[in-house]
Design a protein around this nucleic acid. Sequence first.
DNA 1: CGCGCTTAGGCAAACGATTGCACAGAGGGA
DNA 2: TCCCTCTGTGCAATCGTTTGCCTAAGCGCG
Lengths: 357, 357
Amino acid sequence: MKPSAKVVASLPSTVSAAPAVGLKAIALHLGLSVATVSRVLTAAPAAKSIPKSTQDRVFAAAAEMNYRPNVVARSLRKQQSMTIGVMVPEVSEGYATLVLSGVEERLLEAHYFYFVVSHHHRPEMIEKCQHMLLDRAVEGLIAIDTPLTHRLRVPTVTVSGHHEPDGVTNILLDHNRAAALAIDHLHQLGHTEIAFIKGQEFSSDTDARWEGIQLAMAARGLRVAPQLVARLEGEAPTHDPGYAATRHLMAAAKPFTALFAFNDVSAIGAIRAFREAGLRVPEDISVVGFDDVQSAAYQNPALTTVRQPLKHMGALAAAQVLEQIGAGQRPPVQQIVVSPELVVRESTRSRRRAERR
Amino acid sequence: MKPSAKVVASLPSTVSAAPAVGLKAIALHLGLSVATVSRVLTAAPAAKSIPKSTQDRVFAAAAEMNYRPNVVARSLRKQQSMTIGVMVPEVSEGYATLVLSGVEERLLEAHYFYFVVSHHHRPEMIEKCQHMLLDRAVEGLIAIDTPLTHRLRVPTVTVSGHHEPDGVTNILLDHNRAAALAIDHLHQLGHTEIAFIKGQEFSSDTDARWEGIQLAMAARGLRVAPQLVARLEGEAPTHDPGYAATRHLMAAAKPFTALFAFNDVSAIGAIRAFREAGLRVPEDISVVGFDDVQSAAYQNPALTTVRQPLKHMGALAAAQVLEQIGAGQRPPVQQIVVSPELVVRESTRSRRRAERR
DNA sequence: CGCGCTTAGGCAAACGATTGCACAGAGGGA
DNA sequence: TCCCTCTGTGCAATCGTTTGCCTAAGCGCG
């Protein structure tokens, strides 16, 4: 039997179609009971009293027979699925996927997997996915840019949620600081007539960001003119809403020399709108984005933007969920605030002496 | 009992922490056996002989007690997890996530969920994820831009895989046609000195795309100059490799008036490199990308590119996997070819009469 | 009246692991 | 010698469903 073990082990690692070996097969092969085999392989406390020699036999057989535990059976018995659920507006969009990559990295370390489901901001879908995920026995939930209306029976963490129900942990950006960074930058460049693009109503960051802006403007003695405020409309995660909002701003007959957009994607849409109107960025108008998505650095002009540590926020969310799953009833932390960073590139420049228009 | 059902149903849909009701609870409540309840709720064939009145009682009780089947137990018993595994290079990147959105949409319709795991192109990770996913009892696998070395014991579909082992279905683009579209476009604009950026070695599309290009060039009597061919290096899913490759091309002292990049991301990096070198796109040089990612349309200049129907390809992949899961041993189709589309925007223009350089 | 079919539903064995409890033999101390 | 404590292992229940097979009453029909 010993040589054959060698042979089997050195076969190409093709996953064979053989009739899956379970504990039973090993036990039979070894003349032991499934209980013993299970205890050895899972290093259960009761395995302490099992002699090394037996353990070695078990391990050898498991390796030789290429035993793989059946996670479904294990989940059923232990009542834990080693799975968490992630809700995102859209899997094909830059913000959520960056967060997701942080989530994934952290979860994999803990041998957890995750289900993703995207709800496209449709409220009934947001509700429905929670049920689908819970039905799938997820042990925890991470909601990325997704408003939650009630708490759930599993540990829940939101990323950039606001006004969350009690008991859910929220990972969020320091929006006041973010606004301060951007406004300071523009102000120092001499801009005082600054236009803004607010986020869509459904985006959970919209309000906090806007408040931060108002605070920052007021603190510097600047005024935000109502005519210089536009709002993204429409659900599409494309540049179009930013483009449209900017056309709107230009239509109002109030001049401005800088624009602070809700995110990079809308900033890019804005730049296009300006360009089509014959305005150059940054010569005629400065534009600041938000998020620092991958492509921000490669725009023409490269985008000045407020960076969110999205991947890190994802990792934090995963860590929190895992922590709460492990912690039992210990109450979760309410929120974790991370810091933004200003990345100055090419889309901002000091205000020209010659007034535009 | 009737009125109370109403009341329960109209309570806020908070997911309570009550001790999950199972078939047993319903059976007990109704004085039936779990078998009967199960048969009714799952509309099993044997339910035909159960009178409507009983069925109604069961449905009512299930609704009232808010019964949710335990999918883990069901999976164990039926030996099907209703889950498929998806392998991607990177969740935070535009190509894979677009495909993923198609996969998700199609799977959700069939009440399937999916696990994603990203392998960052690391071969040992590619191997490992397959095992992790199979250990998780996935019923099928979708590999996006991920080379597979051996077939697996579950139905497998690749998206843009090439040279796949027997038995796996491959969803791929017609690369010959793609190249023909791009080259024709450039040729018609008068370009004959065309530079190329090939994909990374690990990218499964690299070879097919390159062959298509060579064919298309030859068919039009054009020559691809070895000095005008660069290759993306490095794993980062960013614009940097395209930028670097383009610097390389410019360093070789052979003039060219057009560039066909491996994908949009590298095309955008290329445009930046040109711009830094004082070359304008498209006035001095035309650039064609590939993929038509979200941001291609919003570049400055907007990118002319070959569109892949990525979302559709994802949906096809999901449909194929489901089909094969349902089909039993019927042999799967070998490949499904989809058509590219040329999207002409601003980054290409007819060759200037005045030669550059 | 006897037979067979339909109706209505229950029993119990899976699925594959985990785990509390039991038990048998060895060894040691009083 | 008796009792007690370790060792080393096995039995069987359990997780919540599904499903093959069984029973038992009712009914129609020859």
